[in-house]
């Protein structure tokens, strides 16, 4: 839902697109080679989404596009006409954190913080996938109704997001807090 509109034009502009980021409508004039990640970071200055590898191998750039998690470095911005994009900045603010962000702080689910926005966006996308009944490699019975997010399921489904500080046990604990309804 658009609350206001914002036009940004890139120096090597070529193509205009309209999209919504964190509830705000944007018209961007941009180089067709620009990844969604670079459009967010360099045009809109939403640097919460991180560039870790630019090849879809680390997950630091994960954002939500129409509710689904994607590696924003692996998709061109021009492919997202009319899409609704949510970045870490749209989930919560430092003074009013999303419950999962608060759980990450409480569980110390990060150290350097560079992969963290991607981990959190990825976890939100992952929880939606689990609610929708999507199985994973760790699912014992893929034909069964519903998904129980065991530790093994969470670890498997979060393995597209590398944390070199290796806060993995804490990331799983933070996500489990949300799954189990522990509110902080």
């Amino acid at each position: 839902m658009a609350v206001s509109s914002n036009d940004v034009k890139m120096k090597s502009a070529g193509i205009g697109i309209a999209l919504t980021v964190n509830g705000r409508a944007h018209r961007l004039e941009l180089d067709p080679r620009t990844s969604l990640l670079d459009a967010l970071r360099e045009l809109l200055h939403l640097t919460g989404a991180k560039k870790g590898c630019d090849h879809g191998q680390c997950g630091a750039c994960t954002v939500l596009v129409n509710g689904r998690r994607i590696n924003s470095c692996l998709t061109l911005a021009v492919m997202h006409e009319d899409d609704d994009i949510v970045t870490i900045e749209g989930l919560g603010k430092p003074e009013a954190l999303h419950p999962l962000q608060a759980a990450f702080v409480e569980r110390d689910a990060f150290q350097c913080g560079y992969c963290t926005p991607g981990q959190i966006c990825s976890a939100i996308g992952m929880l939606a996938e689990a609610r929708a009944g999507w199985p994973s490699h760790a699912t014992v019975d893929v034909a069964a109704e519903g998904t129980t997010l065991t530790g093994a399921e969470i670890r498997e489904r979060m393995s597209g997001n590398i944390c070199r500080c290796a806060a993995y046990p804490n990331i799983v604990a933070a996500i489990r807090d949300i799954v189990e309804g522990v509110h902080r």
């Binding site: 870490i88 919560g92 430092p94 954190l97 608060a102 913080g113």
Partner: peptide, 22 residues
Amino acid sequence: LNRVDGPLKVGGRAAYAYEHWE
């Protein structure tokens, strides 16, 4: 004690080297 820079980091507001606009 929880990390005092935690809310900035989980909020995506901690600025790393490539992310300064001032």
